[in-house]
């Protein structure tokens, strides 16, 4: 049976300098490599007769805005089904240059997963056959899972949500005006920028 130590040994033999940051959070071997090598490492994991990581479990990105120069992490979870062992492999990239090689040549499963990662994080997978948005609308011009896009403020009151059961006559979740309706008073609606609200 393959163990984490053996995998680590095998990897450091092949990539002595490049593969770094070995960890074992909750028993799963985790490491990282430079982004230029992502395909080389995945190929090695796939082809090597000892390792045989031939099942792509999942692929996703994580955004760390405070890590300068390595803001985006692309995380691969691969599985060796014969020895039943999992592995986590990360590459980091700068958000200004989010280009990494696609793994679609190796795993057909990577196709949509990479499209999803592109859609939500803007990672540009070089060589992807059809890199376009998958879950969001095509007209969208930003990548919503990045940390700079916060979720809507749950206490905001300036929105007409009558169609969704908030606001309007029922008034739930909206500021009450004197008339008792849940909508914004007219004086506020029509006010121009720069002028104080009377």
């Amino acid at each position: 049976m393959l163990t984490n130590e053996q995998i680590k040994k095998r990897l450091t033999e092949k990539f002595p300098e490049e593969v770094t940051g070995f960890e074992e959070p909750y028993g799963m071997l985790t490491f990282e490599a430079p982004k230029e090598l992502n395909l080389k490492v995945l190929n090695f994991l796939y082809d090597d007769e000892e390792l045989k990581f031939r099942f792509l479990t999942t692929l996703c990105a994580v955004h760390y805005p405070e890590k300068k120069g390595r803001e985006l992490a692309i995380v691969y979870h691969v599985h060796n089904l014969e020895d039943n062992i999992r592995l986590r492999f990360k590459v980091y990239t700068a958000i200004s240059e989010p280009d990494i090689y696609t793994a679609t040549g190796l795993f057909s499963a990577a196709n949509w997963l990479e499209r999803e990662t592109y859609d939500f994080y803007g990672v540009n997978f070089i060589g992807h056959p059809n890199l376009k948005r998958i879950l969001n609308v095509e007209e969208m011009d930003y990548h919503p899972m990045r940390k700079e896009y916060p979720l809507e403020d749950q206490t905001r009151i300036d929105k007409d949500d009558e169609m969704f059961g908030r606001g309007g006559e029922s008034g739930f979740g909206t500021a009450k005006t004197e008339e008792g309706s849940g909508t914004i008073p007219e004086s506020e609606q029509q006010h121009e920028e720069g002028k104080p609200i009377v």
Partner: peptide, 20 residues
């Protein structure tokens, strides 16, 4: 602090949760 991947056999396959 930590990162964990856990999966269960869902109705139509491996349902995984990757939590950081």
């Amino acid at each position: 602090v930590g990162e964990v991947y856990n999966s269960v056999e869902g109705g139509n396959g491996e349902l995984g949760f990757y939590l950081i």
